[in-house]
């Protein structure tokens, strides 16, 4: 165990995101956590199974990089526009959003997904969003 109190090079996350991560960590539903800009700051083990790579391996990604690697894609395999993503809608409108699309694991397996994005708001405004993925077929 590291007992070093690390200097605060990274500012502490808002409590809403900390609690959301704790919640998602313990879910068996694939789930992602994004910051207010849409950057992925965490996904759980179930999401890792879906993508074929754990969050630790995947690292922190911005939305455009994310799209190139795993999608989401439409039925024809074309990348979805960022405006069409439930996450973008949730972050911009501050409202829940739902959508269907495909994603591709790092091993090249495509999954049809239904996704629900829920904004996380606090007194100071939008902190981010959590997105739950339901594959249409068992992984």
């Amino acid at each position: 165990m590291s007992t070093e109190a690390q200097s605060t090079t990274k500012p502490q996350k808002p409590l809403g995101l900390i609690l959301a991560r704790n919640f998602l960590t313990n879910l068996s539903t694939a789930a992602f956590l994004v910051d207010r800009e849409g950057g992925i700051i965490f996904y759980n083990e179930a999401a890792g199974a879906l993508l074929g790579v754990s969050f630790d391996e995947f690292g922190r990604k911005r939305a455009p990089e994310w799209g190139r690697e795993v999608g989401p894609f439409d039925e024809d395999g074309k990348p979805l526009g960022i405006e069409d993503l439930p996450t973008t809608k949730a972050l911009r409108r501050g409202r829940p959003a739902h959508g269907s699309f495909r994603i591709r694991s790092v091993t090249g397996v495509d999954h049809e997904i239904e996704a629900s994005a829920m904004p996380i708001s606090a007194e100071g405004g939008q902190e981010g969003a959590m997105i739950l993925f339901w594959p249409k077929e068992p992984v």
Binding site: A5, Q12, L19, F23, N26
Partner: peptide
Amino acid sequence: GLGAPLEKLEPEWISGFDLACK
């Protein structure tokens, strides 16, 4: 520590870390 492994979590994800640091 609710739902979180305190011993290995990055500081930025620990509730109260900045308040109590040193």
